[in-house]
Nucleic acid binder design. Structure first.
Lengths: 212, 212, 212, 212
DNA sequence: CATGAATGAGGCTTCATTCAT
DNA sequence: GATGAATGAAGCCTCATTCAT
């Protein structure tokens, strides 16, 4: 490659492409080793880039994590677009959920757990977690509403059940080597069917928590 | 106990009492700041003890974490003894669960999440997590079996639902400042009632996960 | 060399130059205080370098010692090149030996002894000591063979006498403030002359060690 | 054992016996691991004694080393008494030397080297080394004088050869796993015979060291 | 823009020594 | 006399970050 072409090649790569490249490297490293165990040197090797250069695109290592979480959030938004104009929306939703859990690796799950953990000590990441949760909730409630076959279905309550359940599945996937993900997916499916068809105990039935 | 004996009691703190004292300090620090952010100096301050002294009771900082998890596990075993000989076993179970979730602080939940996270990178902690999970599962399945009012209740399946759900509630408690724990407890209660009374969709109904 | 080039030369110190610089500092510190008493901070001061920077060039403090020993070994190899094509080989050999012992400082001798001592506990240094010894032996035997004036000279036996003698002189130089190095050199010279000229008792004369 | 007997047993063990016991333990530990690698805890275990108790008998760890060296020196004095009134003094001397070198373990040799090394940094140990050397020299010169068969034998010169040679053998024994001690002993024997019988090059022949 | 050598604060751990009992 | 728990000063090393080139 000539110097001129080289220059062009460099010109072609905008700052946002650089950011993406760095985030790719970060994702690879963080997934492999977690971000506490990943050093900026590791990142530099993975990104084929000097350590100092990161700081032109991200303020700090923490900002990198933040960028990664942010990108993940955006990807979630995109992923979910699959629902649009599906002829079998309920099947599509179930498929989406199944695919997510069946394809997540232990390492990826571990990174999610690590991020939740970091969330509890780091306000910036916490904010992002809260926002992701809110978006997730909004989307789910809207989607569930559209899929309900009976007014007896309470989409908000269904989500309130689903949300921790899904988080817990990720934790289990990460921390328990023999965890049965497929079984968990099956249970979510059943729960969703039941919930959407109004066959789940209603929050209206609730007695306030006893034993306190 | 006489005053003299009392004095002796204070002086003759056995090694296990020392360990407890250290674990208390560790619990306080780790709960407050997480164990990655807790230094041995912090611990020393909290335990009113010189840093070097820890190493008479624990091999390393990691061993301290391990000791803490182990103690937590034992406490779980004790906690659960409450069920023995209760006149209202189902109510007692519900109460136990309610109390656990209603009383857990954000920080304590955060520590649990951090431990799960550490579990994914640290074999020793992983082993402990797996063991705790196995014990938890055994106890729950036995207890649920005893509480079922119909053969249609599948205790193993019910626990398979409960386990990630409870983990997810801990995660939510830790990572979402406004998380509605009480609501979650109510839902667990309903789920338990439904499950024990055979009103939950059976795993027998399962279609294999679709969408892959 | 232009001023600009000079500037570049100062700036572009290759990694091996850095290593040399560090080894120089290490040699100074270790010679002054021994390496057990030398801290990485001492080294940092001596090398005008931050402590962390050493670890870009050497894996550990031990590796530093190793590097120093290795360099010493290479220097020995170079030193010995002086023999090549000398018109008075025997004189050159005697001169070499004389120079070595007359110029070694107490501190330098002390460092050698410390390295031998370390050799007994540290496998990596032991390996290097063994290798140095083997090389030294090979060179000496070859050189003595070339210098012998009679087949009655047994170069291997002569080296077997010389080797511990020289080590012992180093020890004496290090541990005995008033040790007479010049006298020792004289004795080595005499021994060498006698050995090379076949005037030393032959190992063939040996009775096996008595008194056991 | 009754309390009274216990008290008697304790009384029977004088402070100097205690010192011996401690030195025994120190010798065992130091020989096994060197004294830099031996902790006071190791010593305590070996001596079946509390760490604090050492300080009633020795000022510091260094004093322990010193005590050990001192005892070694005294033992040397005793060892040498064997020469007194022997019917075959030369054979006895050769036997003494042979026995010393053939029976010394690598570890014991290593400890000697470590002590020489320490000698170079520690004035108290240095003083002891110097004194030992002086005593050794006096004894050897006297003994060699008595054994000489010709006035051509220069006992002082012979010792000046012997002394570093023997030190070097100890170093070699310590640092070179395959070192041939028996061969070295044979050479010392030959050298002694030659020296005592005036068949060794005289220092009178010496030219001053060349090559400087 | 990019580099990568350098920084330096701070972490975990060790261990000779002390002192209350 | 004896104990052994406790001390606390260092020591080695790591790694996010900077900055001269």
């Amino acid at each position: 490659m000539t110097a001129a072409a080289d220059g062009l090649a460099e010109a072609r790569v905008g700052p946002s492409a650089r950011r993406e490249h760095i985030l790719d490297a970060a994702e690879a490293c963080f997934t492999r080793n977690g971000f506490h165990r990943t050093t900026m040197q590791d990142l530099a090797r993975e990104a084929a880039m000097s350590p100092g250069n990161f700081y032109r695109y991200f303020e700090s290592k923490e900002a990198l994590v933040l960028g990664l979480v942010e990108r993940e959030r955006e990807r979630g938004t995109l992923l979910v677009a699959e629902m649009e104009g599906s002829s079998d929306p309920r099947g599509t939703l179930l498929g989406l959920i199944a695919r997510y859990f069946m394809s997540i690796t232990r390492e990826a799950a571990a990174l999610r757990v690590e991020i939740w953990s970091e969330s509890t000590r780091n306000p910036a990441i916490a904010a992002m977690t809260v926002q992701t949760e809110a978006e997730s909730r909004d989307w789910f409630v809207a989607t569930l509403s559209a899929l309900a076959t009976t007014p007896a279905c309470d989409p908000a309550a269904l989500y309130a059940l689903l949300a921790p359940l899904m988080k817990g599945i990720v934790v289990s996937r990460a921390a328990l080597p023999d965890y049965d993900v497929a079984g968990a997916v099956t249970q979510i499916h059943q729960l969703l069917h039941a919930g959407l068809d109004g066959r789940l105990p209603c929050p209206a039935d609730a007695r306030s928590p006893a034993g306190l």
